[in-house]
Every structure is written in C-alpha cells, then in structure tokens.
Amino acid sequence: MNKRRCSTMEIMAVAAAREIRDREVVFAGTGLPMLATMLAQQTHAPDCVIVFEAGAIDPRMLHLPMSVGDSRTLVGAAQAAGLFEIFNYVLQGGRVDVGFLGGAQIDRYGNINSTGIGPDRQRPAVRLPGSGGSADVAALSRRTVIIAHHQRRRFPLRVDYCTSPGWIDGGATRRAAGIYGGGPAAVVTTMGVIRYREPTKNPYLASYHPGIDAQQVQRETGFELDISEALETQPPSAEELDILRHQIDPERIFLK
C-alpha cells in the first residue's frame, strides 16, 4: 500500500490499535478509540474485550456507535450493565488494562484538560464538555493511550486545568497524589507517537507519521520533546486499511 493513499486518521487508528494487546480489557470512548479497538479485534488482538462506560461489556458490534450510550454497543454484548458496574467493579476494581483518552490540551507530562481553556476557571474562554469518565479512566486504568490533534496550542507546557491526571509533574508525583497504578503509555497524535521515559517521565518522540519529520513535530509542541530516537511510524498495511474502510466504518462516521 502506497503510504500517500491513507489519511492521517487512518494512520492514527492503526497506531492506536497496535497499542492494544490480545486478551486485554479496553475502555474505549467515542470516535477513534472505537475504530482502533475494533481493528485490533479483527487483527492481532481477537480476544481483547471492549467496555463502554454507559454499560455495554464485550459487544460484537456490527455498526459504529455515535456515542458510548448508543444501542449499537449492545449487539452481541456479553452484558448490558450500567455506570455503577462499569465504574465500581470494572474500572475502580482494577480490571481495565488500557484506557483511551482524548482532550483539548495535553501537557508535558500527559495531563489532560477537557474542562475549560483560559485562566479564569469560572469564566473560561472556551468551556469544554468536562471530565465524563476521562479522569476516572486516567487514574484507574493500568495504562492509558491518549489520542490528540497535534497543534502547538493544544500541547502547552502545562494544561490550563488538569481534568485527567497523567504523570502530574513527572517522576513519582503521580504516586504521591494518591494514584496507585497506570499513567499514559503513549500519545498518538496527528503527527506522531509520544512516549515517556523512566523514571523522570520526560516525554520523547517515539515516531513521526509518514510525510512528517521530527523537527516539524517539535515545532508544533509547546514543550521540549526529545526527538533523538524518533523513527517513522510504521504505515498501515493494506489489510488494516481494508478492514477499517470496509468493515468498521463504511458509513464514514469517524474516518476522514
């Protein structure tokens, strides 16, 4: 497959899918995380299990849901539960391996803002939807994968509001805040994939997408990113693209 023939969204969905291992329990939200998890199920991780915060557990979806409460999340599902079971038993009980997150701002340590932009918390310049389950997933999954649009203003040194804790201030600060497990493993962006070094939790560019170079990624990032070891993101295979386009999102609801 010629790499120019696939979109950024397709590259991201494939990169996100590769973060999932077989037999893992995946907490997925609307949009790209659903595409990624469904793709993983149809390729290298056939026995990974999706849970949705609105209540569906392990569905075999035939059509893409437009929100996590959608009836489409119930087709072939193992269980239809509710928020009480999902948040208490599945998430807080420590049973989620990978949680997907998104947000308007992502900072140096993978903290996420999905509450409001601007210095005045009571009168934000832009009011965002709020945490929903995002902060819960960020704190309680074994690891998280963040999906983000890569622009300098979206990658500030520090978020205006910490909705969902990442590595907080780096080092051991996450643990000191009372958060026992988890933390961001990867940020899959429109330009590449960022990961974090041990034990400082300083970010580094693991890969840049085809058609983009590492310096470009640094220019669009509002904090210092170690780009010394960055490689090109492995492009989607013909099989992965075929599954995404023809089986997972033929209606083109999320794929652009």
Binding site: A139, P165, I168
Partner: peptide, 10 residues
Amino acid sequence: PTRSMLGTDM
C-alpha cells in the same frame, strides 16, 4: 469514597 478525582483540579 472514590479513588477518582485525586490529583485533578476538581
């Protein structure tokens, strides 16, 4: 009690 909310600006 919940394990959530800790470390956030909430």
